[in-house]
Design a protein around this nucleic acid. Structure first.
Lengths: 165, 165
DNA sequence: GCGGAATAGTCAAGCCCTCAACTACGCTAC
DNA sequence: GTAGCGTAGTTGAGGGCTTGACTATTCCGC
């Protein structure tokens, strides 16, 4: 995403009653939009450059690693990664090519599959994690006061409640 | 982007001294990560569904519309849209196919081109803007208190200062 | 003015994502 | 037990983005 909100337009062409953003809201909107885009972009580039793992794959590895058996149903994995099923399916195929994940039939449900983190996958994650966390610290936490971090969390959680998670 | 930070790993396998995230930081990180992803996703889908314009294109139209002559150098446009030059070049080509933008030679610099917003492009933006701003209100501003909005802006601006803009 | 470096923009290959169609299995009711 | 429907997951086509190589132009020092 990206996107400023109001066109440089005079009044009168658009449906009356549009609640345009005022100046403060415009500034807040641009600050949010640009900072999130730039930060995501920076973290992504750092991660790929230093570990060769795109963040979408990293997230999959993390979710699997946090599970007792290092395995999870494909759909649950998709949900946790905020990913569509199709996208996850493609991603797991590519992770299988790297030898980091394999698919395994699900005993309780003949339709289902389990994504299983291999030892190689776990090792790759273990190597990448310290690098990634350092990047997150450098570009996010080291820049903010404890109050700002608390506020960021509060805003994030409020939005998540509305968006449903 | 996406991405949890620490692997479910015992101590000892990774370089000593990694500054792992504590519980509060983890929660703040996940809240930020998931809320920004979900919100961007939601706004993008709303915009495409109701106007047919992806946010990357919308941003280009907005930037051009805010300029006195509705034209801008390709590189400046790329910078303002947080876009690579290649990406912008592709996007402008596609906007040209829609008849919303055209390229024009730059008088002062034979290497350069100007992207010019056409009347059709301006009309498309004018039609889309109220719909988009309503979506931003619904999913962002209507969910937050004035204090939260101020905090969001503060955090965003702080991060932008570090990331350079 | 000339040679080399820097800048503006484009293009092709490859990767990733989305959308919609598809297969396969499970569940329920009759 | 089988029809019909819902769920799990995959697949392929098509579009967008990134990277890196390429052309054209300008700038700068001499």
């Amino acid at each position: 995403m990206t996107t400023e909100v109001s066109p440089a337009t005079g009044a009168g062409h658009v449906p009356a009653g549009t609640r345009w953003l005022d100046d403060g809201e415009q500034l807040a909107w641009r600050a949010w939009l640009h900072s999130t885009q730039m930060l995501q972009d920076r973290l992504e580039r750092d991660l790929v450059r230093s570990t060769g793992i795109p963040s979408a794959y990293y997230e999959i590895l993390v979710q699997l690693s946090e599970t007792p058996d290092r395995m999870m149903r494909m759909s649950e994995l998709a949900d946790r990664c905020l990913s569509s099923r199709s996208r996850l399916s493609h991603a797991v195929s590519r992770l299988e090519e790297r030898g980091w994940v394999r698919r395994q039939e699900c005993p309780e449900d003949g339709r289902g599959l389990l994504a299983v983190l291999t030892d190689e996958g776990f090792a790759a994650l273990e190597a990448a994690a310290p690098i990634h966390v350092e990047s997150v610290r450098t570009h996010l936490f080291d820049q903010l006061s404890p109050q700002q971090i608390a506020a960021m969390r509060d805003v994030g959680e409020t939005l998540l409640r509305h968006l449903g998670r």
